[in-house]
Design a protein around this nucleic acid. Structure first.
Lengths: 348, 348
DNA sequence: TGTCCTTAAGAAATCGATTTCCTAATATTA
DNA sequence: TAATATTAGGAAATCGATTTCTTAAGGACA
């Protein structure tokens, strides 16, 4: 039979007890800093623990204590090629480990049945809580979770019903941030290139763009909003041509994501226009590709790492009995690089 | 006290036993398909299980069975912005879950001390095995792991000492594949743009490029190998200019990664050269950005998903007692898009 | 000095399963 | 028919901790 399945960490609390000439319960008390112990025995036990290289078996401990200090993370996104999932995961893991929790990674590949299977496995494993990452499933389809009392939080999902806490990025604020930046640089005619319209993010980013215009007393010109209902470079390339063909073209362009901005940059170059000297350009996502472009593209960074951390914080709070079903929107950050010509600031 | 910490899945094997009027040991026997049971009691117990919605507590089971059907994955890379880590993780998770294993995600952020902490936590949690992902640590610095008998495998790490099985990509084969493709398309003067020379991948990809040339009877011209000791777009942009300034410039270029290829594409466009009509171009990594470029860049896909799966397979094999310390190199795949003008094939 | 309280530490129960061992009933064989 | 083997199912031990319950010893106080 499997050689490694047996015979793991051989030394148990009993061994320590024998070595230190005390009862197992006494060893447990020094481990948990509980009960009344004399300094002398405490030291003797600690010495035995060190000498025997003893580490308590978490499984046994969990069985008795009725918690595992473990959380499950079910990833429902199907994009293995987007780093934002990784950033969310890293955020979750980092915050969890800081609080002494381990995290189970599950990839449902956006399949409802797989998600339910994972849910049951996690529940069987007695996780203390579960985070749904980029979940596409409606909250009410969580039968197993409802039966048990395990706290849930939703990460990067616009909630359908507010039964559980959730954390999402503030797209509106991010888009406003980008537009404000261009306005602050002195631009008055600012173009907006949008992405896939069936995605909520498109509308939210347009909303932020419009909010910034309004706040600055600039009139909204619908001609300055272009898009090919797609998120990729070609969409940016095509749209920037539309924009520059206007009788009164923009002096700055905000793109709803980085590939669009990269496409726009290519298009502008083709038109013989220089970024940032002739026109300012800013993207959204802060992708690696944006940073590596020449000129390096300014962009909006979404707070994925912090979102992951907040999700854990909220989970731990429900664990402590705080009930909440709030939607938490986290702000984006402006990443200034050379594509907006930020030195314009000095020319005010 | 924490509301959710108690009171989880209330129904235990004892409840089922009571309901079905049998002993807990009998219920266990139907759960594990062991021992001698009459059909009648088996059915009665199964019915009770269904009626009570009973699911066995994995923690209790693990304690008794001395295995957890859980593996740990320690990620040592510090790049949250590269998708290859995500792909490796997804591969590991997918293969593990298929075999009924759950996986703990740990991010050491390339810190040796954090890695050791995670190692101990995982061992405390009684994982059945551990996968080191993109490990920068020398194998011999794994004290806790050596003491316990937990099997280890190294993923995406060039091993220092072959104490454990490891799986890595076949960079040489991948580079040869790219070069072979260009050769098959009729090219005889093929340029190579390399990346950071302190990275092993640079040398391996150069090696593959040279091997392909040699196999095709093409002479190696060192002038055709350029690079700025960097992996990003600017390196590609600069190098392609060097290449095209040659008295006898190449008709095709293989770049050691996709950002280099993207930079090269920009450079060629700037020079008034069309891809693929004037010159063929292929990258390495199969990044999202490469797919989204116009023209879409051909590239080499590294087998990260399969690498992750193989790592799990190897781990499970050690779990079953098969000792092995082999290095497994997995082949890369050619992703044909439009940047090489593959229709040239028909003009032979 | 006797009573009460506090402290130190061990014995035993417990968490929820699995596994070993045992007993009784039934079937098989000589 | 008697001896033996097989089957069904339960009792109890076990995994490795924690927790509750006890007991004994020592200290404080009247």
């Amino acid at each position: 039979m499997a050689k490694h399945l047996t015979n793991k960490s051989a030394v148990t609390i009993k061994d320590v007890a024998n070595f230190a000439n005390v009862a197992p319960s006494t060893v447990s008390k020094v481990l948990n800093n509980a009960g009344h112990l004399s300094d002398e025995t405490r030291l003797r036990v600690q010495d035995a623990i060190r000498k025997l290289n003893y580490r308590p078996n978490s499984i046994a401990r969990s069985l008795r204590k009725n918690h595992t200090r473990t959380i499950g993370m079910i990833n429902n996104s199907h994009t293995n090629k987007n780093t934002f999932v990784l950033q969310l995961m890293v955020g979750v893991e980092e915050a969890a480990s800081q609080e002494g929790f381990s995290v189970f990674l599950c990839n449902s590949s956006a399949s409802q049945s797989k998600e339910n299977e994972y849910l049951e496995v996690l529940l069987d494993k007695q996780v203390d809580g579960i985070i749904f990452l980029d979940n596409v499933v409606k909250e009410r389809h969580l039968p197993a979770a409802h039966l048990s009392n395990v706290p849930l939080v939703f990460l990067n999902q616009y909630p359908q019903e507010a039964l559980y806490p959730s954390v999402i990025p503030n797209d509106v604020q991010g888009a406003k941030l980008a537009t404000d930046h261009l306005i602050a640089l002195g631009h008055k005619r600012i173009g907006f290139i949008n992405g896939r319209l069936k995605h909520k993010a498109s509308h939210l980013r347009l909303e932020g763009y419009q909010a910034a215009l309004k706040a600055a007393g600039l009139t909204f010109d619908s001609q300055l909003v272009q898009g090919k209902d797609i998120w990729d470079e070609e969409g940016g390339y095509l749209s920037v041509n539309d924009l520059m063909a206007l009788t009164n073209p923009p002096t700055a362009i905000f793109c709803a994501n980085d590939p669009l901005a990269i496409g726009a940059l290519d298009g502008l170059r083709q038109l013989g226009l220089s970024v940032p000297d002739d026109i300012a350009l800013i993207g959204f996502d802060n992708s690696l590709a944006a940073a590596q472009k020449r000129p390096a593209l300014s962009s909006i960074e979404m707070p994925f790492l912090d979102m992951g951390k907040l999700a854990v914080k909220l989970l731990l709070e429900s664990l402590e009995g705080k009930v909440s079903n709030t939607v938490h929107k986290l702000n984006c950050h402006l990443i200034q690089r050379s594509s907006c010509g930020a030195k314009m600031r000095s020319s005010f």
